[in-house]
């Protein structure tokens, strides 16, 4: 993968349009892309109307408008109280998985990427090959053996079963590697070395600050991956008290079947909405950072 980096260009340019000319805005193009925008937000709009409906309205009223009753507040209250308020528990679990799992993944990837980019040591080439290979290995293909291995280690049905696999993000490592290579000037490190600063100290006092956009970007990818994780919890967990939101919602959907069925589709919808909100807010808040981090760290000829 022949990759080089231009870290600075985007930052210097900011997000403004090209300076060589200010292109005229095109109505045609806007309308054309507008269709794509509608496609993107249509299901979310459907969801927004869905959360205002009770069960009967949900299955009888038009999807893109309100139902007979406005049940948003009832739904919200019910989501948080249904089944002993387990939704809150799922929410907190997800937070734990994200903070520890995605947070750990970011730390490991940052340190690792930095180490690979800025140091020469024996086996570095091997790490490069193995990690790149790992990106191509389907994560879910590993799920079954991981389950078996973890079950022998007594880790299944514990939070570790979700956290440990989340700690490794080969793509994050790669992103950070490429980013750090450009973002941290080698001369700066050498100057610090001449001054007698330890590598760790240099990392914390000098390099870390320069790596922030990359870290935020890696963190966001890790957060999304952890927040959306479904397959791994599905096979690893059987105690509902350990579920993340995704698996919990699926459980509620599955509750509608069989002897003793309790269909709660309206709660599934409201719960789905509540699952999306925090992650969307995270994206919006951190927008400034990750966009520069991504363009800086992104692959380019």
């Amino acid at each position: 993968m022949a990759l080089t980096l231009t870290r600075s260009s985007s930052r210097l340019r900011g997000s403004s349009a090209y300076s060589y000319s200010r292109p005229r805005r095109s109505i045609t193009l806007t309308v054309l892309l507008g269709f794509l925008l509608i496609y993107s937000v249509l299901p979310l709009t459907w969801l927004l109307f869905g959360i205002t409906k009770d069960q009967p309205d949900l299955i009888s009223s038009f999807g893109l408008w309100f139902g007979e009753d406005f049940s948003l507040f009832d739904n919200l209250a019910e989501v948080f109280t249904y089944d002993g308020g387990i939704f809150t528990r799922w929410f907190l679990n997800t937070i734990v998985y994200v903070v520890v799992g995605a947070g750990g993944a970011t730390l490991l990837a940052t340190a690792g990427g930095y180490g690979l980019a800025k140091f020469r040591f024996r086996g570095r080439n091997a790490v490069f090959a193995v990690v790149l290979g790992a990106i191509a290995v389907p994560g879910t293909a590993l799920a079954v053996p991981t389950f078996l291995l973890f079950s022998q280690l007594g880790l299944t049905n514990t939070m570790w079963a979700i956290i440990l696999p989340s700690l490794v993000s080969p793509f994050g490592l790669y992103l950070m590697w490429v980013f750090a290579a450009e973002a941290v000037p080698t001369e700066l490190l050498e100057a610090a070395r001449v001054d007698g600063a330890s590598e760790l100290r240099t990392f914390f006092t000098i390099s870390l600050r320069l790596l922030v956009p990359g870290i935020v970007t890696v963190a966001l990818f890790a957060i999304v991956a952890t927040w959306n994780n479904y397959f791994l919890p599905l096979i690893m967990l059987n105690d509902p008290n350990l579920f993340p939101l995704t698996l919990g919602l699926y459980r509620w959907l599955a509750d509608a079947s069989g002897v003793g069925a309790q269909p709660v589709f309206h709660l599934v919808i409201t719960g789905a909405f509540l699952t999306i909100v925090p992650i969307v807010i995270t994206f919006l808040v951190l927008q400034r950072y990750w966009q520069s981090g991504l363009s800086a760290g992104s692959v380019k000829q």
Binding site: F150, S151, G154, N238, P240, A254, D255, S257, G258
Partner: peptide
Amino acid sequence: LVDTSGAADNNQALQNAIAAGDG
């Protein structure tokens, strides 16, 4: 008390737990 939601999930969880020898 653990709510296993339904027969399918219940069986699978039981099979997993027995395989794991834990839980």
